[in-house]
């Protein structure tokens, strides 16, 4: 709770509610810390829980890759328009205004770029019902924007596979990004906000991308342009993200967790043995 921007996440409508949510969050955090071990995917959060809550049972664990048996993706530009894609549930800290305005800049005739398409894949956040419909209406004048609506699991490879670049139009983050791992699985270049958590994930897990300042249209347009105007850069970023995602398949993450379970069971058996000896 200490690191979440509740206003961006759509929960900070007034100070009393914000205080209530933060207090509740701290209580829940203390309850979670009653577990034998709590695994986190960001080093900063391990340090925070150790520092603020005195927790000694927290550990850093890898996120892992979603597609254990994925075939090597193609790093070449597909046929048709260059597809700029964003994926998620929108309306709180994932917002598309800046992205659509950046896309409109990129399409300006003076740039003489090949045809572009912006694919907004996903639905409204449960806390922002009607957001995407509102955006579609507000930006109806921007051509070549496609709203896919809900994306079924079987369509996820198609959506990612057809994209040239995946954009993360986030104003804040709450930890590691599953979408970034998916982009890596499909060998996609990423355009990322220059936000602490994301930068940390990228550094720790070997991902990379072109960065923009959150809510800055020019900065985002320039970051996307550095990818779509430079195929060599797009491929290099895509390959590095693919290697990062492939680095830890889920089966190895499971082994990692199993090792912690075994350690816990050994510790438990040792404690029980000591208690037994003391009683004897």
């Amino acid at each position: 709770m200490e690191t979440v921007d509740l206003k961006s996440a759509g929960f900070g409508s007034n100070k009393v509610i914000e205080w209530g949510i933060r207090t509740f969050g701290k209580i829940v955090t203390r309850l979670l810390l009653q577990a034998d071990v709590v695994a986190l995917t960001i080093p900063k959060y391990v340090e925070l829980l150790r520092r603020e809550y005195g927790a000694q049972n927290v550990l850093l664990a890898p996120h892992g890759s979603f597609e254990d048996n994925a075939v090597m993706p193609s790093f070449e530009q597909g046929a048709g328009p260059i597809k700029i894609m964003t994926f998620g549930k929108f309306g709180t800290y994932k917002r598309v205004e800046t992205l659509i305005e950046a896309f409109a800049q990129l399409q300006a005739p003076e740039h003489k770029r090949p045809a572009l398409e912006l694919v907004i894949a996903g639905t409204d956040s449960p806390n922002a019902a009607g957001y995407l419909a509102q955006m579609a209406q507000r930006y109806a004048h921007v051509p070549n924007v496609r709203y896919t609506g809900y994306v079924s699991e079987s369509d996820v490879p198609v959506i990612f596979g057809e994209s040239s670049v995946v954009v993360f139009p986030y104003t804040s983050t709450t930890g590691s990004s599953g979408v970034l791992h998916q982009a890596g699985d499909y060998g996609k270049a990423a355009v990322l906000p220059n936000i602490g958590d994301f930068a940390e994930v990228i550094r720790e897990e070997g991902y990379t991308g072109e960065f923009f300042q959150p809510n800055d249209v020019d900065s985002m347009a320039q970051a996307i342009a550095r990818v779509i105007d430079n195929p060599a850069n797009r491929k290099a970023i895509g390959m590095q993200n693919y290697r990062a995602a492939r680095g830890l398949p889920m089966e190895e993450v499971v082994d990692w967790y199993m090792l912690h379970f075994e350690t816990l069971l050994d510790e438990y058996a040792n404690r029980k043995g000591k208690i037994g000896l003391a009683k004897a």
């Binding site: 720790e204 897990e205 680095g247 830890l248 993450v253 082994d255 990692w256």
Partner: peptide
Amino acid sequence: LDSAALSTLVQAMK
């Protein structure tokens, strides 16, 4: 040392 290296050590130990 990164998470892939740690995972390699976990696999080796296993």
